[in-house]
Design a protein around this nucleic acid. Structure first.
Lengths: 148, 148
DNA sequence: ATATCTGCAAATTATTTGCATCGTG
DNA sequence: CACGATGCAAATAATTTGCAGATAT
């Protein structure tokens, strides 16, 4: 019994939402599926051209925006200024390796405690949150050569 | 006994770190002290010109970078793409009002639980984190006119 | 006095838009 | 076939750099 791959599952999300499964989108899906680190739009275009040589940067931007809206790609807010993107559902969070840039998803530790804390401290009624943890990934912690 | 104002305290940080307290920097400090919402560099320049008419956008960028490095100003990563800046120490977090954009600092709810969770789930050794909570601020929750 | 800081103009980088064409459903 | 999607070129927005002159200490 074949396990449904990440790529197949994304294709399903696209179709279910009424969007077409085109070659450029396939290329972007493949790139994001095969990489575990945050990628800038320009990186995605370059890597995507390995399988779809005519892939344009504009299409990458549009595809990322679409995938972000569909909840299957996440924008990463690195300490610096450039936005990166990564495969990931929008109910999870990311750990970002400060050595190699690898990104790993982890489930939300739970909001009740946090939201109660915020309500007490600020009076706000919380509705959502962004959480990113930076640290050293297992590969970098073990070997000296890192994982990049 | 006069309470040390935010502005005086910032001036102290600057001097202690060996930087000069110039008019443009005073202007930026004043703007950030007087506003409780995230401001884009362009906003800061416009508001800063009320007291220092020759304030340039480039200087605003450089000042924000300096203040961020000194740990007295924080970059806010809004859902969209534009970076905003806000007064705040770097050991706190922000609640951002989704209605009026007001930003309120709150103390970190504590990292041990979170970091243990991340370690278990990902194997990463956490060293820091970004946390932003979105919600409705008390002013917007009460009146209909919001606070903007 | 003098090294830091500033502001302008211009360069660079990031992102969006217009439009003719292409390709999926 | 029809409409959504693409890619290019160009427009716009965001940020950085070079440098001559101003200014805090």
């Amino acid at each position: 019994m074949k396990k449904i791959s990440n790529e197949d599952s994304w294709a399903g999300v696209l179709r279910d939402a009424g969007f077409r499964l085109t070659m450029p989108r396939r290329a972007v899906i493949r790139v994001l599926s095969e990489h575990r680190e945050g990628l800038a739009p320009e990186d995605i275009r370059r890597l995507g051209r390995e399988t779809h040589p005519s892939l344009g940067l504009v299409t990458v931007y549009r595809t990322l925006e679409l995938f972000e809206n569909l909840g299957i790609v996440r924008r990463i807010h690195l300490p610096g200024r450039r936005h990166c993107f990564c495969a990931g559902r929008d109910d999870t969070h990311f750990a970002v390796c400060s050595r190699c840039g690898r990104v790993t998803e982890f489930p939300c530790p739970g909001t009740p405690g946090l939201y109660g804390h915020v309500r007490t401290e600020t009076g706000y009624a919380p509705t959502g949150h962004i959480l990113e943890v930076s640290g050293v990934c297992p590969v970098c912690a073990r070997g000296r050569e890192g994982c990049g």
